[in-house]
Simulated scan of single mutants.
Amino acid sequence: MKKMLFATEFFLVSFIFLLPPITFFPRKSTPAPQEIKLTFFCLSETLVCVLLLFHHKDLYLKKYKFTQKPDVFTRHSAVLLSFGILIFISIIFQIILCLLKGHFQENTGSFSGLVPPSSPLLWLSFFSALLCGAFCEEFLYRFYLPDFGSELFPVKRFPFWEVLSVLVFGFSHSYLGIAGILNAISCGTILRLLFLKTKSLAASAGVHFFYNLFTAFSAIFFSSTLHS
């Protein structure tokens, strides 16, 4: 009975939060630059993820908190190295786009840049959206899908859930085009390794947040440059 309830929960979470981003394919037309702001859906998703983390805290504690953790130097080194690798990956993909497309953004994607917030309240919404997004993605793709999924439906002799979580995370960025998907797959792999190394969801979420912050400010800068 308990496993059936967990399975129902797993499929509901997958249907509501994991599947919709995969089905959002980029359009050929390029819309106006967008803005990042905190939405009701983002707040709702964050609340659900917090409740799910609390609900499955026993699994999280058993796999990561009650096991031997690396020392402080190792954790900090892993965090800094992972952040550096993520930035390097992002720069490499943008260089490739420049060489292939002749400009910074991809014509075939639905993302054409970001508009900077125009008020302190919108800046607060901007940072809150990035923070909530980083936490939700880390919980869903770095813990819930690979760890809870493998606990619920174990697959032996093949890291099925590890591969699936990275691919689902990658294709959830389909709105950024092929380059965005490949970039997300690469970054998702690094973030999962960081999570396994540090045994801390806070560490991977923190790195994810600052990476999103870096890419957002880069998009704002290049968007304002291209549209000036």
Rank of each mutant, 00 (worst) to 15 (best):
L145M: 12
G113N: 09
L100H: 01
Y141D: 04
Q68V: 03
L196G: 00
A203Q: 08
I190Y: 03
F217C: 09
K197D: 02
N107H: 08
L52K: 00
R27D: 06
F221M: 11
E106T: 14
L196D: 04
N212Y: 01
A203F: 13
A7H: 04
L59I: 12
L182Y: 06
L121I: 04
V155L: 03
V207S: 03
T198S: 13
G180C: 12
Y64K: 11
S174Y: 08
A32V: 02
S110T: 10
A129Y: 02
L124I: 11
P117A: 04
K57S: 09
H56Y: 13
E35Y: 05
F93R: 12
F160R: 14
E162L: 13
L164T: 10
H208T: 07
H208A: 05
K63S: 08
F221G: 01
F158D: 11
K63I: 01
M4Y: 12
L191A: 02
A179Y: 11
I22M: 15
R27N: 13
A205D: 03
V155C: 04
P20I: 02
S186A: 11
E151A: 14
F221Y: 14
K62L: 12
L51A: 05
T198G: 12
L194G: 00
K28M: 10
C98P: 05
T215P: 12
L167G: 09
F153K: 07
L131V: 06
H227C: 04
E137Q: 09
G206F: 03
F17L: 14
L152V: 11
L18F: 12
F221K: 09
P146H: 01
L18P: 15
S150V: 08
R142F: 01
T39C: 01
L121H: 08
T198R: 12
I95K: 06
L100N: 00
Y144N: 04
L18A: 15
T39Q: 03
L124Q: 11
L131K: 04
F169V: 15
V207P: 03
D58M: 13
T215V: 14
S110I: 04
V48G: 00
Q34P: 00
L43G: 13
L121Q: 13
F88Q: 11
Q34H: 10
G109E: 09
G206W: 05
T46V: 00
K57I: 06
P21I: 15
F66V: 03
K57A: 01
F104C: 07
E137C: 05
F11E: 11
L80E: 10
P146Y: 02
E9T: 02
F210G: 10
F54I: 03
L114S: 00
L38V: 06
L191C: 06
Q34T: 01
N183R: 10
K3V: 15
R27V: 08
E45T: 05
